[in-house]
Amino acid sequence: MSPQNGSQDRAKVVVEFEGVNKWFGDFHVLKDINLRVRERDRVVICGPSGSGKSTLIRCINCLEEHQAGRIVVDGHEIGNDLKSVAAVRKEVGMVFQQFNLFPHLTVLQNCMLGPTKVRGLSNSEARDRAMQYLARVRIPEQADKYPGQLSGGQQQRVAIARSLCMQPRIMLFDEPTSALDPEMIKEVLDVMADLAQSGMTMLVVTHEMGFARTIADEMVFMDAGRIVESASPEQFFTHPESDRSRLFLSQILSH
């Protein structure tokens, strides 16, 4: 994939949505979504609940399938072709609201599963890599514990490390701090800010507006299945264009 009509000096497009529509039965969740994410972009998607934010990013690694339009991720068009699904999932990491660690495996084994089974790394290579990323999310000392023995914040950091061990080109975050106690939110956001600093391409669904403002290159505001507004954070937070985003911001920033 080469940039089709973007400015010459910007990086190549790694995620592209073109007129994407999706239904859950009769419910129209995604309506004519057009979105373009370039390498090293940090896109924050916000909006009221039920607006389709999570569904949107879940389409990127094929956890949801779309019914109309085109989604191209890292040069692979997503469709019914199983090979492209496998290729995309290798390159796209995802962090979930409920962490979704594998409870029957230790922290270290959680981080080694993908690299050994999918990337074909040897056990010792995978272990070294896992320890490296566990150090990066600041919990190398928990490597031999089981997820159930960790706090929510620690579990979420392990989940981030687990994704990073696959050395993905794109990271998706689906409300990564929504299930956390307030005092644990910061440790997770710090790790994510670190990651943003390192140049990772990130799509983040979050309600943490302070965090969004500091790390985002682009804010995408969704409502009722549509992208209502997409703008730079300065623009979005100071002069939101639509009434809908103004209302949303006033509600979410008022407390």
């Binding site: 690694n61 094929c62 956890l63 496998a86 999932r89 290798k90 796209v92 990491g93 995802m94 979930f96 979704n100 660690l101 594998f102 599963l113 993908g114 089974k117 999918v118 990337r119 687990r162 994704s163 696959m166």
Partner: peptide, 8 residues
Amino acid sequence: EAGFSVGL
């Protein structure tokens, strides 16, 4: 979903 997301 977690398994798929690490490429299994």
